[in-house]
Lab assay of single mutants.
Amino acid sequence: SFNTVDEWLEAIKMGQYKESFANAGFTSFDVVSQMMMEDILRVGVTLAGHQKKILNSIQVMRAQMN
């Protein structure tokens, strides 16, 4: 498990989005775990492969939080 959203993004090789997530207010796992595709688009993730990777990881995160 990760301590910060930045660490999580690095771990899934999506570190290039750290600033975008932070600027959009997605700075805690409570918020990130609620993200939908529209949120991912809003933070500027436009590549389908990256969207899928982030969404898949969020689903895993949700499962671990319950």
Rank of each mutant, 00 (worst) to 15 (best):
residue 63 A to Y: 07
residue 54 I to K: 01
residue 46 T to W: 06
residue 12 I to F: 04
residue 57 S to C: 13
residue 53 K to E: 13
residue 60 V to Y: 13
residue 17 Y to F: 04
residue 5 V to A: 02
residue 60 V to T: 11
residue 30 D to S: 10
residue 52 K to T: 12
residue 64 Q to V: 08
residue 60 V to G: 10
residue 54 I to V: 04
residue 32 V to Q: 00
residue 41 L to F: 08
residue 56 N to E: 15
residue 62 R to E: 09
residue 34 Q to H: 11
residue 53 K to N: 08
residue 37 M to A: 10
residue 6 D to K: 05
residue 27 T to A: 07
residue 16 Q to I: 10
residue 9 L to E: 01
residue 20 S to R: 13
residue 30 D to K: 13
residue 28 S to D: 11
residue 31 V to M: 13
residue 1 S to L: 13
residue 9 L to T: 00
residue 21 F to Q: 00
residue 48 A to F: 07
residue 5 V to L: 04
residue 38 E to F: 06
residue 7 E to V: 06
residue 19 E to F: 07
residue 45 V to L: 02
residue 64 Q to S: 12
residue 36 M to W: 08
residue 47 L to M: 11
residue 17 Y to S: 01
residue 54 I to E: 00
residue 30 D to F: 12
residue 60 V to R: 11
residue 32 V to G: 01
residue 40 I to K: 00
residue 39 D to H: 05
residue 21 F to V: 01
residue 26 F to S: 02
residue 30 D to Y: 12
residue 38 E to H: 09
residue 43 V to E: 00
residue 63 A to I: 10
residue 57 S to E: 15
residue 52 K to Q: 15
residue 1 S to K: 12
residue 35 M to G: 01
residue 33 S to I: 14
residue 47 L to C: 12
residue 34 Q to W: 06
residue 46 T to L: 12
residue 65 M to R: 07
residue 59 Q to N: 13
residue 15 G to W: 05
residue 18 K to P: 01
residue 57 S to I: 05
residue 56 N to Q: 14
residue 51 Q to A: 13
residue 64 Q to I: 12
residue 35 M to R: 00
residue 43 V to H: 01
residue 29 F to P: 04
residue 8 W to L: 02
residue 31 V to W: 06
residue 48 A to C: 09
residue 58 I to H: 00
residue 56 N to S: 13
residue 16 Q to H: 06
residue 9 L to W: 03
residue 15 G to H: 08
residue 38 E to G: 10
residue 65 M to G: 08
residue 39 D to Q: 05
residue 39 D to K: 03
residue 21 F to T: 02
residue 23 N to V: 12
residue 36 M to V: 15
residue 3 N to G: 14
residue 12 I to T: 04
residue 24 A to G: 09
residue 51 Q to R: 08
residue 59 Q to T: 09
residue 9 L to R: 01
residue 57 S to N: 06
residue 44 G to F: 02
residue 20 S to N: 15
residue 12 I to R: 02
residue 24 A to E: 10
residue 43 V to L: 12
residue 30 D to R: 13
residue 32 V to C: 04
residue 46 T to G: 06
residue 19 E to M: 11
residue 64 Q to K: 10
residue 57 S to Y: 11
residue 13 K to W: 10
residue 30 D to V: 12
residue 35 M to W: 03
residue 55 L to A: 05
residue 41 L to R: 11
residue 22 A to Y: 14
residue 24 A to C: 09
residue 54 I to T: 00
residue 7 E to F: 05
residue 20 S to K: 13
residue 8 W to S: 00
residue 13 K to H: 15
residue 3 N to D: 12
residue 57 S to T: 04
residue 26 F to R: 03
residue 36 M to Q: 15
residue 57 S to F: 09
residue 47 L to V: 15
residue 48 A to Y: 10
residue 37 M to L: 14
residue 48 A to G: 08
residue 42 R to A: 14
residue 12 I to G: 03
residue 37 M to G: 05
residue 8 W to A: 00
residue 46 T to C: 07
residue 4 T to E: 10
residue 12 I to L: 13
residue 58 I to V: 10
residue 18 K to T: 07
residue 63 A to W: 06
residue 46 T to F: 10
residue 11 A to W: 11
residue 2 F to V: 08
residue 4 T to C: 09
residue 55 L to H: 06
residue 34 Q to K: 13
residue 8 W to N: 00
residue 48 A to S: 11
residue 44 G to L: 02
residue 3 N to Q: 14
residue 66 N to D: 15
residue 39 D to E: 05
residue 53 K to W: 13
residue 11 A to Y: 14
residue 9 L to M: 03
residue 9 L to D: 00
residue 40 I to C: 05
residue 43 V to M: 06
residue 66 N to E: 15
residue 10 E to G: 06
residue 61 M to H: 05
residue 45 V to F: 01
residue 40 I to H: 00
residue 19 E to L: 10
residue 53 K to L: 15
residue 22 A to N: 08
residue 64 Q to Y: 06
residue 44 G to Y: 01
residue 33 S to H: 07
residue 38 E to N: 08
residue 49 G to K: 14
residue 62 R to G: 11
residue 41 L to K: 12
residue 33 S to Y: 11
residue 7 E to K: 07
residue 42 R to S: 10
residue 43 V to K: 00
residue 52 K to A: 13
residue 2 F to I: 10
residue 61 M to D: 04
residue 27 T to P: 02
residue 61 M to N: 05
residue 5 V to Y: 03
residue 8 W to Y: 02
residue 36 M to F: 08
residue 58 I to K: 02
residue 17 Y to Q: 01
residue 1 S to P: 15
residue 38 E to P: 10
residue 51 Q to P: 03
residue 20 S to W: 06
residue 64 Q to F: 06
residue 36 M to L: 13
residue 1 S to M: 14
residue 65 M to Q: 09
residue 3 N to Y: 11
residue 18 K to V: 07
residue 22 A to K: 15
residue 62 R to V: 12
residue 65 M to Y: 04
residue 12 I to H: 04
residue 66 N to F: 02
residue 53 K to Q: 14
residue 45 V to Y: 03
residue 23 N to P: 01
residue 49 G to Q: 15
residue 16 Q to D: 07
residue 41 L to E: 13
residue 55 L to T: 04
residue 10 E to W: 05
residue 64 Q to D: 12
residue 43 V to P: 01
residue 19 E to Y: 07
residue 54 I to Y: 00
residue 46 T to A: 08
residue 14 M to F: 05
residue 47 L to N: 15
residue 26 F to E: 01
residue 50 H to V: 03
residue 40 I to N: 00
residue 22 A to R: 15
residue 58 I to T: 04
residue 1 S to Y: 14
residue 25 G to Y: 04
residue 29 F to S: 02
residue 28 S to K: 06
residue 60 V to C: 14
residue 17 Y to K: 01
residue 18 K to Y: 05
residue 34 Q to A: 09
residue 29 F to C: 05
residue 54 I to L: 13
residue 48 A to R: 10
residue 17 Y to C: 02
residue 14 M to I: 03
residue 51 Q to D: 02
residue 50 H to P: 03
residue 16 Q to L: 06
residue 14 M to P: 01
residue 6 D to T: 07
residue 51 Q to S: 06
residue 55 L to S: 05
residue 62 R to H: 13
residue 56 N to L: 12
residue 46 T to V: 12
residue 44 G to E: 03
residue 36 M to I: 13
residue 41 L to Q: 10
residue 51 Q to V: 14
residue 13 K to F: 13
residue 4 T to D: 08
residue 28 S to E: 07
residue 58 I to D: 01
residue 15 G to S: 12
residue 45 V to N: 01
residue 54 I to S: 00
residue 62 R to M: 09
residue 66 N to Y: 02
residue 16 Q to K: 08
residue 57 S to V: 04
residue 48 A to I: 14
residue 37 M to H: 10
residue 8 W to P: 00
residue 49 G to V: 14
residue 64 Q to H: 15
residue 4 T to F: 06
residue 13 K to L: 11
residue 6 D to C: 06
residue 54 I to P: 00
residue 36 M to K: 15
residue 14 M to V: 03
residue 51 Q to Y: 05
residue 23 N to K: 13
residue 50 H to F: 03
residue 66 N to A: 14
residue 11 A to P: 00
residue 21 F to L: 03
residue 28 S to T: 14
residue 28 S to M: 05
residue 6 D to Q: 07
residue 2 F to L: 08
residue 26 F to V: 09
residue 1 S to V: 14
residue 12 I to K: 02
residue 59 Q to P: 04
residue 49 G to H: 15
residue 1 S to C: 14
residue 58 I to A: 03
residue 40 I to R: 00
residue 32 V to M: 03
residue 65 M to C: 08
residue 44 G to S: 03
residue 58 I to W: 02
residue 48 A to Q: 10
residue 59 Q to H: 10
residue 28 S to C: 07
residue 48 A to N: 09
residue 60 V to I: 15
residue 62 R to Y: 07
residue 62 R to C: 09
residue 15 G to K: 05
residue 44 G to T: 02
residue 21 F to I: 02
residue 13 K to N: 15
residue 43 V to F: 02
residue 1 S to T: 14
residue 39 D to Y: 03
residue 51 Q to L: 10
residue 52 K to D: 12
residue 46 T to S: 11
residue 42 R to L: 10
residue 53 K to S: 10
residue 24 A to H: 14
residue 15 G to A: 09
residue 16 Q to M: 13
residue 12 I to A: 03
residue 36 M to C: 12
residue 59 Q to E: 15
residue 41 L to G: 04
residue 6 D to Y: 08
residue 41 L to I: 15
residue 47 L to R: 12
residue 38 E to A: 12
residue 28 S to Q: 06
residue 20 S to Y: 07
residue 4 T to G: 07
residue 5 V to E: 00
residue 46 T to Q: 11
residue 43 V to A: 15
residue 10 E to M: 09
residue 49 G to M: 12
residue 33 S to C: 08
residue 31 V to S: 14
residue 16 Q to F: 07
residue 35 M to Q: 01
residue 45 V to P: 01
residue 17 Y to L: 02
residue 28 S to L: 04
residue 63 A to F: 07
residue 29 F to T: 04
residue 22 A to P: 00
residue 64 Q to R: 09
residue 40 I to F: 06
residue 44 G to I: 02
residue 62 R to P: 04
residue 65 M to T: 06
residue 40 I to D: 00
residue 5 V to F: 03
residue 22 A to V: 08
residue 10 E to H: 07
residue 33 S to W: 09
residue 14 M to A: 03
residue 25 G to D: 04
residue 21 F to E: 00
residue 50 H to R: 02
residue 26 F to C: 06
residue 11 A to I: 07
residue 24 A to F: 11
residue 43 V to C: 13
residue 2 F to C: 11
residue 42 R to V: 08
residue 52 K to G: 06
residue 63 A to T: 13
residue 7 E to I: 06
residue 5 V to I: 10
residue 62 R to N: 14
residue 13 K to R: 11
residue 25 G to R: 04
residue 49 G to N: 12
residue 59 Q to A: 13
residue 30 D to G: 10
residue 39 D to C: 03
residue 19 E to I: 09
residue 3 N to W: 10
residue 44 G to K: 03
residue 56 N to H: 14
residue 20 S to H: 13
residue 52 K to L: 13
residue 59 Q to C: 12
residue 55 L to M: 14
residue 34 Q to R: 10
residue 39 D to R: 01
residue 32 V to T: 03
residue 7 E to D: 14
residue 63 A to S: 14
residue 32 V to N: 00
residue 37 M to W: 10
residue 11 A to G: 13
residue 45 V to A: 03
residue 21 F to Y: 02
residue 27 T to V: 11
residue 31 V to D: 09
residue 6 D to W: 12
residue 5 V to D: 01
residue 58 I to N: 01
residue 49 G to I: 12
residue 64 Q to T: 08
residue 4 T to R: 06
residue 29 F to G: 02
residue 15 G to D: 11
residue 56 N to W: 12
residue 19 E to S: 11
residue 36 M to H: 14
residue 42 R to P: 01
residue 26 F to W: 08
residue 9 L to S: 01
residue 41 L to A: 10
residue 34 Q to D: 07
residue 5 V to N: 00
residue 13 K to M: 13
residue 64 Q to A: 14
residue 39 D to W: 04
residue 48 A to K: 13
residue 15 G to Q: 07
residue 58 I to C: 04
residue 4 T to Y: 06
residue 12 I to Q: 05
residue 24 A to W: 09
residue 23 N to G: 08
